[in-house]
């Protein structure tokens, strides 16, 4: 592969990392609170509120039912409003974030649901407020699960970002389509796929390791 091609590949990788990085952080900032709200307003939870829970659940489900490629074009007016253009890497971040928020919310809710309700009761019995229960019990105890959920989101966003490339978002997906597919350069396509595989592997094992480090629940060694 020519040095020019390698440079293109490098730039595309940076674009992908930028898109995925920024949209991951933004979707976590919006999705985690939403997930917490979904959980605590659920049946039998500390701030049970059936109407609010139903509305939130419906919005999140609606968000998840729109195929990403359709979301990408459907929210172009919104994207223009936010970043001033619908083309380029910055513009791709908007649909990536919007698409990921409902996933983060549901995954976070699932992770929070795994927290033993007995721990919530223990905190309640001490007189902890709902806010304290969320921040000092639910979130810390669910942390390994939340990290795992976030890892899934980041990996999914790598895939989505390739689609964003199709509408001018740049990145590895864009490179693969334009050079590998449209210009019949299978070596470029192969290189793109290899880079993506390595990237996803790296992200997933980093997430797994972090989740494992945070998890004290399993028995490490019995010390008696």
């Amino acid at each position: 592969m020519s040095p020019e091609m390698l440079e293109l590949l490098w730039d595309a990788l940076l674009e992908t990392l930028l898109m995925v990085g920024v949209s991951s952080v933004l979707s976590a900032l919006a999705g985690l609170p939403l997930g917490v709200l979904l959980h605590v307003t659920g049946r039998g939870q500390i701030l049970e509120n059936a109407p609010l829970n139903r509305v939130l659940g419906a919005v999140v489900n609606a968000g998840r039912s729109v195929p990403f490629i359709i979301l990408l074009v459907a929210i172009i007016p919104f994207t223009r409003l936010v970043v001033g253009t619908s083309l380029g890497t910055a513009a791709a971040i908007v649909p990536l974030t919007v698409g990921a928020v409902p996933y983060v919310a549901r995954l976070a809710e699932a992770a929070l649901r795994e927290v033993d309700h007995g721990l919530v009761e223990a905190a309640q019995s001490m007189g902890a407020s709902p806010r304290q229960i969320v921040w000092k019990v639910l979130v810390p105890e669910a942390m390994p699960g939340l990290v795992a959920a976030f890892t899934i989101t980041v990996v999914t966003l790598v895939g989505y970002s390739a689609m964003a490339g199709a509408v001018g978002g740049g990145g590895l997906g864009d490179l693969g389509i334009r050079y590998g597919y449209q210009r019949f350069q299978p070596d470029v396509m192969l290189a793109v796929v290899v880079v993506l595989v390595v990237l996803v592997q790296g992200l997933q094992s980093a997430g797994d390791r972090l989740a494992m480090r945070l998890d004290r629940r399993r028995v490490r060694q019995r010390q008696r």
Binding site: D116, G118, L119, E121, M143, L214, R216, R217
Partner: peptide, 8 residues
């Protein structure tokens, strides 16, 4: 079931 915080 004790209900201890398992990460503490």
């Amino acid at each position: 079931q004790y209900n201890l915080f398992r990460n503490r």
